[in-house]
């Protein structure tokens, strides 16, 4: 009996141990360290003092922290909405098309659409900067060719359109991910169901909306939450296109760039690791709340259909 228990304990440690250790070192510890750092402040000589929740109070109350924080937060929500309204429907639509029977060059389309996801964000930022550039970009010429030249604007430079433009670039980059996940889910829809629907006389479109879509709802939920987490951690694209000051007039500032500027500083602004940690923790909480709402509010109601 004792021997048996010892053996079970050994097996438990043997199988769980490595994962627990790796996860603790690379995820749990940095998270806790960040949270603890956010309760300190540094004086001129770099010595840190414990201040409790003062940093958070500053972030929420003080005008010079509150305004940029909410501005970044609202921009982030807008950024997320763009992805939900554009990226995911397009991803679902393309996945639906790709899963049609008798489609030629299926693999080619799939690869082409997924390619931007694998490109470095620096290349994406640079290419789109050039494509949209009012000086050398091809977009103005292209619009003129279509007879729509008057519609051209320096989109990336205007307060009204910069964030949407960057959002759409990000959609272009990442549309491959919902596409792949949903495509895989669509392939798992049993062909008997589709065949039965076709015998009942349903069109492709009808089969897609009434049979396939309800069956892949859990995957769409998963894609949404991945999009949410990805968007609220987004930073690199804005940084590579607009820099750390996320102009014009902070109209493209996301929580990620706000965090970066605070933590690492900018030009004459000295970085503040403690205030940066505060923002990082706030971002973590926002994402945590979002994921919880999803898990308890939506995921639980979704049922996996068993066939």
């Amino acid at each position: 009996m004792i021997k048996n228990n010892a053996r079970r304990l050994f097996l438990l440690i043997f199988f769980l141990g490595p994962a627990v250790i790796v996860y603790t070192i690379f995820s749990v510890y940095p998270l806790l360290a960040t949270m603890s750092l956010s309760t300190f402040t540094a004086d001129q000589s770099g010595v840190r003092h414990f201040v409790g929740l003062d940093n958070y109070i500053l972030l929420v109350i003080d005008k010079d922290w509150r305004d940029p924080f909410w501005n970044a937060f609202l921009n982030n929500i807008w950024f997320f909405i763009i992805h939900m309204l554009v990226q995911n429907p397009i991803g679902i639509a393309i996945a639906g098309l790709l899963s049609l029977p008798r489609l030629k060059f299926r693999a080619t389309y799939r690869t082409l659409i997924f390619t931007p996801t694998m490109l470095s964000v620096v290349i994406i930022g640079f290419s789109w900067n050039l494509i949209l550039s009012p000086l050398w970009g091809i977009s103005e010429g292209f619009l003129k060719f279509l007879g729509l030249g008057s519609l051209f604007q320096p989109w990336l430079g205007l307060e009204s359109s910069a964030l949407i433009t960057i959002g759409l670039i990000s959609v272009w980059q990442f549309v491959g991910i919902p596409l792949m996940l949903i495509y895989a889910a669509l392939l798992n829809v049993p062909s008997e169901l589709v065949d039965a629907a076709r015998i009942d006389g349903l069109s492709h479109l009808r089969i897609f909306f009434s049979v396939k879509l309800p069956l892949i709802a859990p995957t769409i939920g998963l894609v949404s939450i991945l999009t949410f987490v990805g968007n609220f951690n987004a930073f690199d694209l804005v940084y590579s296109i607009k820099g750390a000051l996320a102009g014009p007039n902070f109209s493209t500032d996301l929580l990620g760039t706000f965090f970066y500027r605070t933590f690492f500083g900018n030009q004459l602004q000295l970085g503040s690791p403690t205030m940066g940690a505060t923002i990082a923790t706030a971002m973590f909480l926002i994402i945590l709340i979002g994921v919880c709402v999803y898990l308890y509010g939506i995921q639980r109601r979704l049922e996996r259909h068993s066939f």
Partner: peptide
């Protein structure tokens, strides 16, 4: 300034 100077970067 050049047309679309609002989107003109330093290298531009």
């Amino acid at each position: 300034l050049g047309s679309g100077y609002q989107a003109q970067t330093y290298p531009d």
